[in-house]
Design a protein around this nucleic acid. Sequence first.
RNA 1: GUCGGCAUGGCGGAACUGGCAGACGCGCAGGACUUAGGAUCCUGUUCCGAAAGGAGUGUGGGUUCGACCCCCACUGCCGACACCA
Length: 837
Amino acid sequence: MSAPTPPSAPDRDTYDPAAVEAIWHARWQERGTHRTDLSGANPFFQLMMFPYPSAEGLHVGNLYAFTGNDIHGRFQRLKGHTVFQPLGFDAFGIHSENYALKVGVHPMELIPRNVANFRRQLDRAGLMVDWRYAVDTTRPDYYKWTQWVFLQLYKQGLAYRKSAAVNWCPSCKTVLANEQVESGNCERCGTEVTQRVLEQWFCRISEYAPRLLGNLDRLDWSETTKQAQRNWIGRSEGAHLLFPVTDPRTDAGAATVADVPDGEPDDDTITVFTTRPDTVFGATYLVLAPEHPLVDVITTPERRAAVEAYRVRTAQQDLVSRKVTKEKTGAFTGAYAINPATQRPIPVWIADYVLMEYGTGAIMAVPGHDERDFAFAQVFGLPIVRVVAGDGEDARTPLAEAFHGEGRLVNSARFDGLRVDEAKGRIVEWLASRKAARAVTNYRLHDWCISRQRYWGPPIPILYCDACGVVPVPEAQLPVVLPNIPDYRPDDSGVSPLARHEEWYHVPCPRCGAVARRETDVSDTFLDSAWYFLRYPSADRDDVPFDAARTRHWLPVTSYIGGNEHAVLHLLYARFVTMVLHDAGLVPFEEPFATFRAHGLIIREGAKMSKSKGNVITPDALIEQWGADTFRTYLMFLGAFEEGGDYRDSGIVGVRRFLDRVWASAAACTRDGAPDGAPDGAPDAGVLRKLHATIKKVGEDIPRLSYNTAIAAMMEYVNALRAGERIPHHDEVRPLVSLLAPFAPHLAEALHERLGGTGSVMDAGWPAFDPALLVEDEAEIVVQVAGKVRGKVRVPRHAGQDAVAAAALADPAIAKFVNGTPKKLVYVPGRLLNVVP
RNA sequence: GUCGGCAUGGCGGAACUGGCAGACGCGCAGGACUUAGGAUCCUGUUCCGAAAGGAGUGUGGGUUCGACCCCCACUGCCGACACCA
């Protein structure tokens, strides 16, 4: 098996991509072809997701996404828009930091190097980027404004501190993200990961959940992305139910607590969230999250030791395995609470399968109708009661597993016989009238933790003063510059390395002048990327994060195309930050991205690309071998852009042959003595019709990102152009060059010039097609008999059903399938006739 | 487990609202030009069949004059989330 090689021997007048591309890179640079006039009319903001500039350099996944954006942006420019297509670098974060530690080069040295390499590669690929507006999240002139964004959140009361657990690797002495924990162990050193509880900064994104969800219906986004966000926000309708705790020492039975208290949750009332209030009669025990504050209050002395032991055990477990392990464990608190429906006391347990961060951190367990509660009840021998019966079942039908389906209530006193959906409302109403329930909408979305106990990020601009408390750094004092310190390795303290740098750590309090301490956590990289699109048009401005007039002119983003791996986090945080800035009167819109399209993933020979498999494609080598235009076009030819593609080494030669043929066609029609090679010196009518059909098709395919079919259409046209070794006419080739420009911009520039064009092909406009040329005089009608194709007939364009039927039956090859008079004729004008015998 | 996506020739993939399945490309076969070709050009290429014809879009059913496309049930692969009450 050998990889195909490009056609060789550049003698005479053949396509030499390396030469062409070098010439045009230089000219684009000289002429400023890729510069956007920001005051230009008809603005079109084409945004692509900025990359993390890794040391390995650009990978095909990046290039696939960028090329898809570039084609769209170039097309919009050809269509007459002023296109702004900036790019930048998302270079902060734990990934860079770990890599820097590994190779022993300081990130402040490493990142600029990587960025320079990325720019070189991106330019080599022919992207239409105006680098004057590039952003780099690690530069103080950018993160000054990231810190400013944080302060806006703080001012609105949307940034706050609370303690939360983080994963901690005792060996690496560092905080780990959930994805860096592999089955309970650190992904780098394999040490068992533990939990630490630290004070951290959070953003109240959960407060925006209803708006973030509601707006989705109005956004022109890929449906898959919107659905992912809906699931992530996770709205669920249910109820809070109140279970008063009884004191077993004073209450002999249920009677004394039968009178429901005032309904306000107090020290000895457990509030649970449930989406199945209809099953409350089957709630045979309660479970609290081990961290639930009421645990301390209600645990009985006899059970305290066991409960504490269980809480310690849970606290030590890393965050990932706690959620992944399905085996049920728990401890009985010794306390009982009154089921507000049955009035009977039920035991209160703690278990790690109940999460403090969701709902109220407490559940009513209905083992008959919830798998988790069922499993738990089985382990601990707790009662399982059926309260819903499906078809053919009754109150006594035994439960081999939790029953989830439709059905009617049983064992539920006066609610017996109601359907599940009716019962939900009725039971909540009933309990509400006794002040034991309230209908509630709950969201899964939890607040966004932006603290990172690391070095490589923007310092959170907060000071702690013994006298004044928490003090935000005044905006005039921004940026809080990340100091260039040689020792940025995290240590055992769990506090950022920044805390070790006295001269940075201690500063005067801006309010009272006393010595204050800096916040030493840096912020999440998702904060950097949550507003970068606002910065681009104003990237040259030092005085403001984003200029009001430019923002009004360019935003919201016209078209955003990116990977669905950012469907939830990045895109949701960006929407949230934009909404907050809108509420503060700082931007005139609340949704940042008018349209968003998710592109697919690129794989290699049917398998995912990975370093361990050794099947990673290196763009540099392929561009070297085939040329950037061929590589770009091939990437887009692999499959539908929104579906992704399978990169096969063997196919690229086909695209190269196509571009060779385009070059040869342009060469042939400009050669001395042969500019008008067709016999009568005019373009061929058939070729011209095909040309106009191709202009139409390519112009329709590009906006719907159907790049592969657009390329196929151009290939078809080139085949028609050259069929039978005919010499193409000048006017047949020139429009093709424009159609090809978004895909193969260097080649298009060269041929545009060669065919007598002036300036850049990008400013020469998009060819128009003549609809009149597309209609044919005769139509070919497919003839079916009983739904099977039996032949075709040619008829005049507007022939009616009878004429077509007559023509069809006159054809013996068709007529032989029809005995006697047809029962029915189905005629689709201009396309098809179905004869039903 | 839940949510989403996908399943079409030897291969990557087309087929827009139910109307010629297999566009385009790779590969393969034959031919032309050549001292030569792994360059270029031309022709052919879903399968079975000499042909007439038949079969065919993961599997099983359904709706329809007509289904890759719609409905029901299932299988497999890919992705995201994952004890969310």
